[in-house]
Design a protein around this nucleic acid. Sequence first.
DNA 1: GCGTCATGTGTACAGGCGTACATTGCTTAT
DNA 2: ATAAGCAATGTACGCCTGTACACATGACGC
Lengths: 185, 185
Amino acid sequence: MRTRRYDPGRRERILDAAIEVIAEHGVAGTTHRLIAAAADVPLGSLTYHFDGLDQLLAQAFTRLADRLSRAYAAHFDGVRSRDDLVEAVTDMVHGNAGAQVGEWAVSYELYLAALRDPALRTVTEEWMRTSRTVLERFVDPDTARGLDALIEGLLMHRMLSTAPFPREITRAAVARAVATPEGPA
Amino acid sequence: MRTRRYDPGRRERILDAAIEVIAEHGVAGTTHRLIAAAADVPLGSLTYHFDGLDQLLAQAFTRLADRLSRAYAAHFDGVRSRDDLVEAVTDMVHGNAGAQVGEWAVSYELYLAALRDPALRTVTEEWMRTSRTVLERFVDPDTARGLDALIEGLLMHRMLSTAPFPREITRAAVARAVATPEGPA
DNA sequence: GCGTCATGTGTACAGGCGTACATTGCTTAT
DNA sequence: ATAAGCAATGTACGCCTGTACACATGACGC
């Protein structure tokens, strides 16, 4: 029987620490030493558990995507009507969902990293497939695709804008995205 | 009288080279030495013309935003009807606009950098104000805001997706975003 | 009780980074 | 022609990085 010596959740704690560090410093400013300090483990522990920084980050991003996927799905659990959907999406854009603003920012770090590193594409593809699948519980696939893109853009604009972002505008945009082309139901 | 010695457009060439380097390596991988090589100038020339890498990047981003703003506005010049608008936006998302895909990727680097560096916020604010103003030539301000976000999201999803991105879906999503809530005109 | 070995850690090293600065080379005023 | 000065450059320095690796440590089979 294998017995872990001391710290069974260490690997996972390192990955969570990596996400924290990315949220604060960006992928660019993320180093072994910062992650080690955040996870409160010695520097050598990182090279012991992971084969290089790239692989560590890839696994951290995978873990983040899993967490976000679950939060995303859970957020739409109570949705029954078209109006519920509009409200739920609006809540998500305005930060009243499970995920923190910092976590969304990290997901944009992931997007950008994936643009250059094909190994990360599988993570982004999976995450986008998940979010679209959730939306397809309520609307047809083509509409889901447009709505998914709209959510992405609204989130990004809200994160970047310093001026207040009126909730009513978000709601109106979302309502149009899910309306039937011939008019509201 | 001041006479420039040798290379009057050097500053601008350095900034353009910086954008190229960012497009290829990301902000994270952008260094003085790479920029100098791309612009074909000596390393010392960068520290001579710019006070540190951060300021250089900020000016490069500003230059890029100006260029994108002009291309954006020009792209919508011939638009007369609502149908023209839908078509123009669809073209833009699918890469048939003046800007290259690489330039959009760099603009996402800018967004992410701006998320952490308040000095870059003025650049992103200005760029977003410009794009929204262009759209307001055709639709009311609230609709412009939603449409702007949708474009952003569609562009990002198209850049990241490896699967083909059907033009028809884009067109449908755009059409809904600009439709009057009571139904198509 | 004790060797054996996987597990875990501190340290050192080579390389690349941003930046400062002494030096060069060209231009202009005299 | 020459002195003077400024635009431009090459080089060097200190810092921080990722990673390797020699050593410590404690559990398990016997």
